[in-house]
Amino acid sequence: MPVRRGHVAPQNTFLDTIIRKFEGQSRKFIIANARVENCAVIYCNDGFCELCGYSRAEVMQRPCTCDFLHGPRTQRRAAAQIAQALLGAEERKVEIAFYRKDGSCFLCLVDVVPVKNEDGAVIMFILNFEVVMEKDMVGSPAHDTNHRGPPTSWLAPGRAKTFRLKLPALLALTARESSVRSGGAGGAGAPGAVVVDVDLTPAAPSSESLALDEVTAMDNHVAGLGPAEERRALVGPGSPPRSAPGQLPSPRAHSLNPDASGSSCSLARTRSRESCASVRRASSADDIEAMRAGVLPPPPRHASTGAMHPLRSGLLNSTSDSDLVRYRTISKIPQITLNFVDLKGDPFLASPTSDREIIAPKIKERTHNVTEKVTQVLSLGADVLPEYKLQAPRIHRWTILHYSPFKAVWDWLILLLVIYTAVFTPYSAAFLLKETEEGPPATECGYACQPLAVVDLIVDIMFIVDILINFRTTYVNANEEVVSHPGRIAVHYFKGWFLIDMVAAIPFDLLI
């Protein structure tokens, strides 16, 4: 008679799926529990143990900040960024110097990925580790590398530091407007667009060049630039800015003055950032001319202004700041037409079709709590990747769950009947059967004279019903998954307890 339990259901295979997918890609990662103190490590794979030199037993239950890997060259700011990422709910990448158990130093890129439950609360953290440099290539500990984003994938490793954006290309926007319009339909740009040429040739750093990471940081200074100062900065030398009595002219307006920039070969870094931020506020060169004239017309309804409409929906549905990093990277690809469009465009503009998908598509409701890094690593669709929660398995109709209350009560009843059979069957065979043979035949009273025979008949009927119930009862397979398919249940029961239950259900007393 089957006594099969499996009270692990309803099970959740999400954690096993993450481990299996990460292991298949030869990654070095740990999984931490966000619900406990210090976000203790609950799993670390073999790749991480080989990377740091510690065994799994030495890593388990330690804080996922990996303070046991810190050393003299470990930056405090990087460690603080990892700790801050564990307090938030967004994906974050941090470069930090770690030390192995043998004392060797290596520069590592740590990717902190939160995993949320159905309520939107962070319950786990996945920390992925990628070695960037070994100890002989690690720089000085005073050099802070965590304020910069990861290198873009479309640049060669040897040319990542030679990417320079020439400031004269930004200063000569109005001069290039006529050349853009003359391109017409034969050019790649839309009317009114501004073409910015980027020099990728390796050259020595000069005062006129600005690194790509500095251009990325310009967006942080746009908020500090007032509207009046932006307007004066875009007017140009024809209309000098008016300053109040006793007030000095704005240095932001002076930063885009061609006369002032041409007199000296070098520009201050602050002026460069502010000038680029001011130019980015204009949607095209037409807006710059309109600002000089004193009238700013409404933005025209053409394809170039609607190019950012799908980007707005993608940004609203993005799951991490990696989408913004990807957008900034692609927006700086050289030799393309940049349409400086305000994100607050007309909502009635139709979304044009684009061959290049900048932001990841909208994630469906079932995966809105899973970050983009987890979705990318697992390579699963929205119909396959579940949320991290207890999910009731989908069972067929008329199927009994093996952990249901009805099955528990039924098993206790069958257990009592088995005990009765084990006690009274030998007793009936030894004593009652002998008395029946010696006594007179009682054929007239039937079952009324033999109450134990009636009980034995009921017990046999219950055993037959138990066999039928076992054909529709779920079970737990070797992978700790609840199986509810009727065919698989029948095959599993035939290979197991079916023969024993059938022999126990045969009414031998009635056959004798």
Rank of each mutant, 00 (worst) to 15 (best):
R252F: 09
E289A: 11
D323Y: 05
A185H: 14
D67M: 09
A193C: 15
G236I: 08
D102G: 05
E91D: 12
K135C: 09
F340Q: 15
E134G: 14
S266G: 11
G149Y: 06
N12H: 15
T152V: 12
L296Y: 05
P299S: 09
V198F: 06
Q25T: 13
K161A: 06
E289P: 08
P299Q: 14
R328K: 15
G189E: 06
A80T: 11
L167N: 15
L109C: 05
P157W: 12
A204W: 11
R273T: 13
G314R: 06
A160Y: 11
V138H: 13
A34G: 06
P297Q: 08
F106E: 01
K166R: 12
F106R: 01
E95H: 06
Q376D: 03
A142Q: 15
A217E: 13
G139Q: 15
L316R: 05
K344L: 09
H143Q: 11
T74S: 01
E230L: 05
N45E: 01
S322H: 13
P300Q: 03
I126H: 01
C49L: 14
L210N: 06
P205T: 05
V384A: 04
Q84I: 05
F22L: 14
E130V: 11
Y43Q: 01
N117E: 07
V3M: 12
R271A: 12
C108L: 01
L256N: 07
L167V: 09
T152G: 08
S153Y: 04
L109A: 07
P347W: 03
R92C: 13
K166M: 05
A85P: 01
G47N: 12
E58L: 02
S206P: 15
E274C: 04
A160T: 05
Q25M: 07
A97V: 14
I363C: 07
A185E: 12
S206Y: 05
I31H: 01
C49M: 06
M308L: 07
A244Q: 14
V374P: 01
C265M: 15
A79K: 08
N339Q: 06
G139A: 15
E91M: 09
A285N: 15
L155H: 11
V132Q: 15
R292H: 14
L225N: 12
P297M: 05
E23W: 01
E230N: 05
G183V: 06
N12L: 11
V138C: 13
L107G: 06
L378Y: 03
D287Y: 05
S243K: 03
S206C: 15
V196S: 01
V8Q: 15
V131W: 07
H368T: 14
E214P: 06
M137N: 15
S239M: 05
P299T: 12
N317K: 03
A277G: 08
V122M: 09
R181H: 06
T74Y: 01
P347A: 11
Q25Y: 08
L212F: 06
S275E: 12
L324V: 14
S278K: 12
S209Y: 15
F340I: 12
C66R: 01
T305G: 12
R252I: 03
I336K: 14
G226R: 07
V8F: 10
L338R: 14
T152E: 05
V122Q: 05
D119C: 06
S331G: 08
E274T: 14
P299E: 07
D323Q: 08
P150L: 08
T353K: 13
L173D: 12
